[in-house]
């Protein structure tokens, strides 16, 4: 972090280089975006939806190409799109593990044992908060209140909430996830895009 001496470094954002080099939205994604744009008086307002589509299209995180593509499709400056995307905590800028465990450690969850759950998960997965297991299965994070405090401790994994988790039953959560291909970052993004569209799909669906 602290690199004091050099005076002409361009910051590296190496990890954000994408795997999908000439990234473009799929025809279906374009159809979705086109329809969502009609919900608003101008294209710019479709920024958050467009980023959600991008997060799904680009495999669960926003590469620089994803930002460029959103900027192009909405006719907005790239710096603006990047500025908006980085403001929100649910857009990713680095690949995450297949299952992103986001443990709520906020007030009530914190008081009913969330930190114990985090420590247990760190132990079981052999990683610290913010890290991903070497097999790419799990990323562990701490999040702010997920507003389901009645069920604390709450863990969000992609599009699924696990409630009433304790350090004693958290193993079951992992087991359940290990066997499933759902609840990934792209599936969360996909769910959100479907929520934005009447009946869950664009009127002019492209096959």
């Amino acid at each position: 972090m602290d690199n004091e001496n050099s005076n002409s470094i361009t910051p590296e954002t190496g990890e954000r280089t994408s795997c999908k080099s000439e990234g473009r939205f799929s025809p279906n994604a374009i159809a979705e975006l086109d329809e969502i744009i009609t919900h608003y008086p101008n294209k710019k307002a479709a920024m958050l939806p467009a980023l959600w589509i991008a997060q799904r299209e680009y495999g669960g995180y926003l590469t620089r190409e994803a930002i460029r593509e959103v900027a192009r499709l909405l006719g907005r400056p790239k710096a603006e799109v990047e500025g908006v995307a980085t403001f929100y905590s649910m857009y990713n800028f680095k690949p995450k593990g297949k299952h992103h465990l986001e443990v709520c450690t906020c007030l009530t969850c914190g008081c009913v044992g969330a930190y114990g759950v985090v420590h247990k998960l760190e132990e079981m997965l052999g990683i610290h908060l913010g890290e991903t297991t070497s097999d790419g299965e799990f990323t562990l994070s701490e999040v702010e209140c997920l507003d389901w405090c009645e069920a604390g401790t709450v863990i969000q994994v992609g599009n699924k909430y696990f409630g009433h988790v304790t350090k004693d039953n958290v193993e079951m959560v992992l087991e359940q996830l290990r066997e499933s291909d759902d609840h990934t970052s792209p599936s969360l993004a996909d769910d959100i895009v479907k929520i934005l569209l009447p009946k869950g799909e664009p009127k002019s669906k492209v096959e």
């Binding site: 972090m1 470094i9 910051p11 590296e12 954000r16 114990g116 420590h119």
Partner: peptide
């Protein structure tokens, strides 16, 4: 009382070297 885990700044910032 379980001590809290150490705070980490926005992990997305860390790759800046």
């Amino acid at each position: 009382c379980v001590p809290p885990v150490p705070y980490r700044i926005n992990p997305a910032l860390i790759p800046l070297s």
